[in-house]
Nucleic acid binder design. Sequence first.
DNA 1: TTCCATGCAAAGTGTTTGCAATAAT
DNA 2: ATTATTGCAAACACTTTGCATGGAA
Lengths: 150, 150
Amino acid sequence: MSDLLTRLRARGWHLTAQRRAVAEVLHGEHLHLTADEIHERAVGVLPEISRATVYNTLRELVEMGEVLELSADGKARRFDPNVTETHQHLVCRGCGALFDVPSPDVSELAPPRAHRHGFTIDAVEIVYRGLCPSCQAEPVRPPDGRRPAG
Amino acid sequence: MSDLLTRLRARGWHLTAQRRAVAEVLHGEHLHLTADEIHERAVGVLPEISRATVYNTLRELVEMGEVLELSADGKARRFDPNVTETHQHLVCRGCGALFDVPSPDVSELAPPRAHRHGFTIDAVEIVYRGLCPSCQAEPVRPPDGRRPAG
DNA sequence: TTCCATGCAAAGTGTTTGCAATAAT
DNA sequence: ATTATTGCAAACACTTTGCATGGAA
């Protein structure tokens, strides 16, 4: 419900100028920035903030459960401030574009106990993969312009 | 059905000693090795094989659709040779252990057209996150032994 | 001969860490 | 005073790339 900054204040987290800058960058619901993008934007707010502090802060936010970490694209992690509404992600194979989508009912999806290897399960994450409109037009265009074999 | 090496032969792929070594390492159904682990094992078969060749070969196999790439843990990618049976993955938050689980019926899970942002969707990937039996015993023990804040 | 695959080493990303300086209680 | 946080730079882990060599068609 409330935004990240409000939740952090409510939780009594020690809010330095740097941590506030990161939290401000993460304001919003449909944001999926990489750590470096967050650093770039945080520099706009607080010019002397360092990459290390951004990484440290993000790690802490993830550990506190106030930010989600997405590893949908194998490359840089993305950070998602929307932890209050369960949702899933749509990812373009061509350009990596990433969108939130509402979650279907996942209560029936967990594997039967016989296949759980003794695990407890606390989250069901779904990634829908496909092509965004512009990558449908020009077949697959990976970052380097190479074509897939096939 | 058939194993990777057989499929590659059937497809007429130019099978050098190096590519064969990689394919042999990837023999099996429930394997989720990183590129470096694959290189290590391939060296056991063909001592002079280089990392670059392993990476190149893996990229080609993924592009051909003969191997799946998993990015479930944000760190190193893992390569999954089981492309013949749709399945999903169970991942431990504590130690990163990763298991295959049978896929539930995903035909009803795709988001309604209104939420697809014009994407085509060709795959639905599910990651179940939780704790494996040994990480349940000793709370969370990330690779470096640090405890999450709480 | 022509082309493709390989190996090496270097460069490129993305991320973490050691440590001294600084700011907060 | 004491403790926590920051910034810097170096270290690290993972992956890709340029180029000369070598083998296959």
